[in-house]
Design a protein around this nucleic acid. Sequence first.
DNA 1: CCTGAATGAGACAATTGCGTCTCACTCGAT
DNA 2: ATCGAGTGAGACGCAATTGTCTCATTCAGG
Lengths: 183, 183
Amino acid sequence: MAVDRSHVLTAAAALLARRPTSSMDEIARAAGIGRATLHRHFAGRDALIRALEQLGIEQLTHALDAARLDEGAAPDALRRLVAEAEPVAGVLAFLFTENQLFEGEGINEGWTRLDARIHALFRRGQEEGDFRIDLGAAWLTEAFYGLIGAGAWAVHDGRVARNDLTHSIAELLLGGARRSMEK
Amino acid sequence: MAVDRSHVLTAAAALLARRPTSSMDEIARAAGIGRATLHRHFAGRDALIRALEQLGIEQLTHALDAARLDEGAAPDALRRLVAEAEPVAGVLAFLFTENQLFEGEGINEGWTRLDARIHALFRRGQEEGDFRIDLGAAWLTEAFYGLIGAGAWAVHDGRVARNDLTHSIAELLLGGARRSMEK
DNA sequence: CCTGAATGAGACAATTGCGTCTCACTCGAT
DNA sequence: ATCGAGTGAGACGCAATTGTCTCATTCAGG
């Protein structure tokens, strides 16, 4: 009977990512609940978006923890990160594309912290000689988000198999499209 | 005096990409014109989105033509494509993320054609041994769009220098983050 | 079998945005 | 200087959405 808050938010993210102008009613239907119930759990559209942001921060934080970014070689850590972040891709894709959140009040501090951790991973990889230095760590961080998002949509639209997603994202991010000669 | 249609659409794309719920008034202001004038040129919000889609198709088509995807090695062709597509990144980023366009009526045929051409480029690269085959051409196509979009936003938000954008996108797409041993 | 919390459906007013119109103004061309 | 097309500002009614409320129903636990 009790509504699964996380499930509602996930459904909302999936819908809003592809149709940001969806009404509260459409969001409720997508989550399989009534509009009244949706309003009981989230005061309004704004509150829903905030909750979505909060969920994304929590889940990505958890993914970062689970990936143990400081351990082992940077490329392996990145692979773990992609694997851990993939289930959260839907929510992340929405949050990455919709910056409407950040108006007036500055960017949520939580994001700054998460960005910094991912940024640090790429920087470590560069310092240890595993990652190239002609691509800035900031750009690699952005590219990470972009590929996570693109992957989530590609799976959602049936253009990429879910099973391949983690490998596709991680390998493209690490090795690119070009066929490598060595190894 | 005459309103620059292309300029209005570009401004609209830039705004809508980051704030899809923007009102017609906000869009008009962002383009530096009045709401009445906006309505004179585009019958309504739908017409505006359609025009945006049409502009994106035209510009990307032009970019694909200019990049001469069939000539030379696939990696070089991809580099040319990124260079040609980069100025259109803002519009593409919006269209890539907002699939609200395609409801009821199928996906615009123009996109199918463009997708096919990019897809063919990656396939050619794979067949000629320049691109790895463990990543599907469909995924590489999606990744191309995703990185173009991520790049556009990163530049817009000041996280990446515009001058580096083409290089950053093309090199990441081609070679990934990992430092290559050979070469 | 009760009881109560939670839900879905619907009604309701208030708000918001949309599309159209009018009117005064600006600017370029004649 | 005059004319006319194009524009911005604002008003207006209309449709859609929002947020709140009520009420009947459902379901879990005692």
